[in-house]
């Protein structure tokens, strides 16, 4: 006779012994196990932004890890914390992850102290993506405010790699001051090789600035949009995307042809911690990429 409750050892579950695949959401897996990565390169973009190139060390993990433009990863700096960062590199370079990180808090502060060769962890990819395949055959309008250019780099690489799938591509980019402009070293190649139409505007210019001064919406005068056959990808602060999308909507661009990437501070990436909830929607699972119609129907999105 025994009254002992039998032990259930979850470690015996077969799927738990497998390498986690975050694209396989419904599987039981070690959701908190990171892929170890080495920092293979660091590019100092501005005083407060750096571009980190990571390489997933384990070949199995490198093979499993695949993402689509707009998705994000949780970046783990052991001992300091984990932060969500949208991937700003090409989807086709397996095992390689590019992240543009601004120094704003504890974890990003430490990240900015790290040197090439340091080990980090990532989990992911998480969240929704820009529907690049659905956009095939259309004109693309990429609109970024400030650090919003970072998530746009993933769709830009996608377009570059599938350039014949798309018609005209415009980039409208607004920043506060000229020294905050990111990735301008790539603008020439995007223009020349991939035939992009790129417009940059700064809010507060200085003597060195030769370009335009004003708000991002001022750039609309410089381009013509075929509203029937255009998709917009917008990334930036809430006030900015609201202005931009309202304007485009008035021009006749349908709300479901505009895609926005929302920014929230996820703590898990898996719809569990509730920190990134906007109204009743998890930004980490149902976002961060959403069409403008969905965003406008969310309470507290803006």
């Amino acid at each position: 006779m025994t009254y002992k409750i039998p032990v259930y050892d979850i470690n015996n579950e077969h799927s738990l012994s497998q390498t986690p695949n975050f694209n396989n959401k419904n599987a039981l897996m070690k959701t908190d196990m990171v892929y170890q990565c080495e920092i293979t390169n660091i590019v100092e973009l501005t005083e407060s932004e750096k571009l980190f190139q990571l390489k997933i060390i384990n070949p199995i993990e490198a093979k499993i890890f695949s993402f689509l433009p707009g998705q994000f990863v949780m970046v783990e700096v052991p001992g300091f914390g984990e932060i969500p960062v949208s991937i700003s590199g090409s989807t086709s370079r397996r095992g390689s992850v590019a992240l543009c990180i601004r120094k704003v808090g504890k974890v990003t502060g430490i990240l900015h102290k790290l040197k090439k060769g340091t080990m980090l962890g990532i989990r992911g990819p998480f969240g929704t993506h820009f529907p690049m395949k659905q956009m095939k055959g259309s004109n693309i309008l990429l609109i970024a405010g400030g650090l919003g250019i970072a998530p746009l780099r993933a769709p830009i690489y996608w377009i570059n790699e599938h350039r014949s799938d798309f018609e005209n591509v415009h980039i409208l980019y607004g920043v506060k001051t000229p020294e905050q402009i990111l990735f301008d070293f790539q603008f020439d190649s995007w223009r020349k090789i991939y035939n992009y139409d790129i417009h940059v505007i700064v809010e507060n210019s200085d003597k060195s600035w030769q370009g335009k001064t004003g708000l991002i919406t001022d750039l609309f005068k410089d381009i013509s949009i075929d509203v029937k056959n255009t998709y917009a990808i917008v990334c930036g602060p809430p006030a900015m995307f609201k202005f931009v999308c309202d304007y485009l909507n008035k021009q006749g661009l349908a709300m479901n042809q505009m895609f926005i990437s929302l920014e929230r501070r996820m703590h898990c990436g898996m719809g569990k911690c509730c920190r990134c909830m906007v109204g009743s929607t998890f930004t980490c699972v149902d976002g961060p990429v959403m069409d403008f119609w969905t965003v406008m129907n969310l309470k507290e999105a803006i």
Binding site: P78, G79, K113, L114, T118
Partner: peptide, 8 residues
């Protein structure tokens, strides 16, 4: 001294 790539 260093801790995981960070000067200590």
């Amino acid at each position: 001294m260093e801790f995981s790539g960070i000067p200590l």
